[in-house]
Nucleic acid binder design. Structure first.
Lengths: 182, 182
DNA sequence: ATTACTCGCTACATTCATGTTGCAAGTACG
DNA sequence: CGTACTTGCAACATGAATGTAGCGAGTAAT
């Protein structure tokens, strides 16, 4: 059961259109055995999505983003999410598309939490007063996505990646002395 | 011919696994007519990919990134690429995966050009001396991707998006006064 | 040893996208 | 008017993936 889910994650991460046969092969079982556990392909993906959603929610919750200083919370939640996302690359991508109710709920709650955190960060002077929080969140998600891709291919631990993500998000790559466009 | 390609782009952008039937329907022709132009589905995607690769190469070349000041070049190439990418979302994603030789070549050249530009920018003091240029490029690509997604759903013109991308890349979202992690 | 359970395997049915072919209708051009 | 070209349509063939069912072997527990 768990063996199959983990195999499915690996296979689907490499190729989202992979076949049940490939999943079975990766899990070291027969295709019919996979069907015994998960009646349909859709059921398998759903289970995988739910599993990832729970891990995701747990990772975010354990960072206590509402009660610690914004900068610490940002770093903590980033590291926690990266830990999950590097191992559940495919399934985490499924949490966003709304098909799975539980995953959609988790996703919405995390989004709200992210907005609250960014608002607190702005009030605390961590984020610029004129930062567009919507764009900020999208960039933040994209950075996590990118860092997780690097982590999934063996590119360092979650703490180091999180440090880089937060540093990039806050400072960018420009030198302090450089002129700015606008 | 062009009608079909544009329809395919729209359909595949919404759903990369879309069927030939859906493409034909979107183009207002019969499925067999699509097959008359493009023998196989693969051929259709290849044509689309090549088309996008040429537009991509042209967009990058016309920014003269090797001969203008780094900051200007960065802004110009960003705006040019965004103009193409908002209209050829799906096809542009195909230029990276190496299956199409011409697209792979274009992609590699652009990547080299990007590295040269970033190197010049670093020497000119636009980028920090300690900026990891590999990570910088990946973040830059991700920002363009994100901005193009916004642009594709009617979120402003390429110039405004490019300004935001470059600004985010260089400055991030942190306030100058805020402490930094590392 | 008997029971219960799980697994692998073979075989089959079904569905769906793909690709092909032939034909009839329409249009443009000489 | 006749020719050439394109299109839509219907029909068919194929292949791949999905999902189902039954049988026999292996294993663990009682």
């Amino acid at each position: 059961m768990r063996t199959i889910l983990e195999a499915a994650e690996r296979v689907f991460a490499a190729n989202p259109a992979a076949t049940m046969e490939q999943v079975a092969q990766a899990a070291g079982v027969a295709r019919t055995t996979v069907h015994r556990r998960f009646a349909t392909r859709e059921a398998l993906v759903e289970e995988l999505t739910g599993w990832a959603a729970r891990q995701f929610a747990e990772a975010v919750a354990s960072a206590h983003t509402d009660s610690t200083p914004p900068l610490v919370a940002l770093y903590q939640v980033t590291a926690n999410v990266l830990r999950v996302k590097t191992d559940w690359w495919f399934a985490m991508g499924r949490t966003a598309d709304g098909a799975h109710p539980e995953a959609a709920r988790v996703h919405a709650e995390v989004r709200d939490g992210c907005d609250r955190l960014f608002r607190r960060a702005r009030e605390a002077g961590v984020l610029r007063p004129d930062a567009d929080l919507d764009w900020t969140r999208r960039v933040y998600y994209a950075l996590i996505h990118e860092a997780a891709a690097e982590g999934a291919s063996g590119g360092g631990d979650a703490e180091a990646l999180a440090t880089r993500v937060v540093d990039t998000l806050l400072r960018g790559f420009g030198s302090a002395a450089a002129p700015v466009i606008a």
